[in-house]
Nucleic acid binder design. Structure first.
Length: 151
DNA sequence: GCCAACGTTGGC
DNA sequence: GCCAACGTTGGC
């Protein structure tokens, strides 16, 4: 089993939305590195830290789980969607997503500042300078530490 | 709202 | 294939 971090802006789609929806298709990712992880690496049962970016404070808000592996992102073919991509060939789709299910919301959100202050997390990809990817791998030890901080 | 860092685009 | 220009991201 692998561990991941998924970034989202809470005003756009936060953990409350996921809790309400129970499951959702993680769509709209338009970055090739992130696409490759969504398409090739994320597997059923993998667990993901659910991170709120551009929030006050930005923080890991909870956990979700991959319940369906990578499949073409339908929003790329939807002309009414803001993530529509007219260059993508339906027979060879460019963008992928996974289905995730809500697991739980942290009792205490774990802010990026708290994570920066924790030496155990010093290698976290999220905390690297200039880290902008919206899908990031997380080490098991890092995942467990964030869990401990949030519970 | 600022701005550093990064990805993408396109002229050459 | 280089690289300048541009757009986006996201912490602060």
């Amino acid at each position: 089993m692998r561990y991941w971090l998924l970034k989202t802006e809470p005003g756009c789609y936060g953990i409350d939305h996921l809790q309400n929806d129970k499951t959702t298709f993680w769509s709209g990712i338009r970055n090739y590195q992130a696409r490759n992880m969504l398409r090739d690496q994320m597997q059923m049962g993998d667990v993901c830290l659910f991170y709120h970016s551009n929030a006050n404070p930005s923080a890991v808000a909870g956990v979700c789980e991959v319940v369906k592996e990578g499949s073409p992102d339908p929003t790329q073919f939807d002309t009414t969607d803001e993530h529509y991509d007219g260059e993508s060939d339906p027979h060879n789709p460019r963008w992928f997503g996974v289905e995730v299910a809500y697991r739980y919301t942290f009792a205490r959100p774990v802010s990026i500042q708290e994570m920066r202050n924790n030496p155990t997390l010093s290698q976290m990809k999220l905390l690297e300078k200039g880290s902008r990817l919206s899908v990031l791998p997380v080490e098991k030890a890092e995942f467990e530490e964030v869990l401990r901080m949030g519970t």
